[in-house]
């Protein structure tokens, strides 16, 4: 049976009002359903018997006169523990029960403060990927955006995490390379907003370097216990002053020997004190000379057996 609802903004046959459509979980919810018999065709004259249902459960309201031919039923739910529910107002009409009004209620918490914000700059596309801990679920539709500002430009939305994830990537065009930026996470829902700590950084200082490449390893000259390694940095860091480290060990030996302080772009490095006729594994990694930012991953291992 069609629901007797009147089109357009004029108050219809009945309407439901709630204190707030979104409430903190566990708090009270008050609602009222007003039925204007004069506007409900077929209801004229008779007292409208109003009843309520919370989703599929009947709940009791208290009905009284709302003045004129309006009947009002008030409802209080002392402790609303569902995250989402439909509150239906019914009226008895011609021996049938009619749905005449609806209020959709949500409950949850204000957004938690995002924490552990950290970012990494990808040197192939210069996208700045930031990750954070979202904190407790607010149980409510919450919009989360990563904000960023530079000393010369007001705060803008850097990126928006997709599908409820807790990371997103700020595109190059919003970054100020080699300049100071502020980055933070802003979360907001119907019950409030929350912001993470602000990260002050130069995107280049959180660049994730690609590992160098070990080109070749040769003994130098045949009778010594040294080898010379030829290595090259990744093209994406060709313009950087780098600080690199080399490590080597025989395959079965768990401990690496570490050679630090290798400076420069591409060239050679020498290791001495190696055992003769022994297979060795070599790896190298680099980071920016300014000691800021992260080490690259270790390069692919390269093995070389020293001469007898």
């Amino acid at each position: 049976l069609l629901l007797l609802l009147r089109l357009g903004g004029t108050l219809g046959c009945a309407s439901v009002e709630v204190g707030s459509p979104v409430v903190p979980l566990g708090s009270a919810v008050t609602a009222s359903c007003s039925v204007r018999s004069r506007l409900c065709r077929g209801l004229q004259g008779g007292r409208a018997r109003i009843s309520w249902m919370l989703d599929n459960e009947t709940v009791a309201g208290s009905q009284g006169c709302g003045g004129g031919d309006t009947e009002v039923s008030n409802l209080t739910l002392p402790q609303f523990n569902r995250t989402q529910a439909k509150l239906w107002c019914w009226v008895e009409w011609n021996g049938t029960k009619q749905r005449v009004g609806l209020a959709e209620i949500r409950a949850g918490y204000p957004p938690a403060k995002p924490s552990n914000l950290s970012c990494l700059l990808n040197l192939s596309d210069y996208g700045l990927t930031c990750r954070w801990q979202p904190g407790a679920d607010s149980l409510l539709p919450t919009s989360v955006v990563l904000k960023c500002s530079t000393s010369r430009a007001p705060a803008v939305t850097g990126c928006t995490p997709q599908g409820g994830r807790s990371h997103c990537t700020v595109p190059r065009r919003l970054l100020q390379l080699y300049g100071q930026m502020e980055i933070w996470v802003a979360a907001s829902n119907a019950l409030g907003t929350a912001e993470s700590e602000r990260l002050r950084l130069d995107p280049m200082d959180v660049a994730q370097l690609e590992p160098p490449a070990l080109r070749s390893i040769q003994s130098v000259p045949p009778q010594t216990d040294c080898v010379t390694l030829a290595w090259a940095v990744a093209p994406s860091s060709a313009h950087m002053e780098l600080w690199c480290e080399l490590r080597y060990r025989p395959p079965e030996d768990p401990n690496w020997v570490l050679v630090t302080g290798i400076v420069g772009q591409a060239g050679t490095a020498q290791c001495c004190g190696l055992l003769f006729g022994t297979p060795y594994l070599f790896q190298m990694r680099c980071r920016r000379h300014s000691a800021r930012g992260h080490w690259s991953e270790w390069s692919a291992a390269r093995n070389h057996t020293t001469h007898e």
Binding site: Y126, R152, R173, Q176, Y178, G179
Partner: peptide, 17 residues
């Protein structure tokens, strides 16, 4: 080319700053 334009703009504002 767009990266170059962005870099030129960034370097210019780094100097300005």
């Amino acid at each position: 080319v767009e990266t170059l334009q962005l870099d030129a703009a960034n370097l210019s504002s780094n100097i300005q700053q």
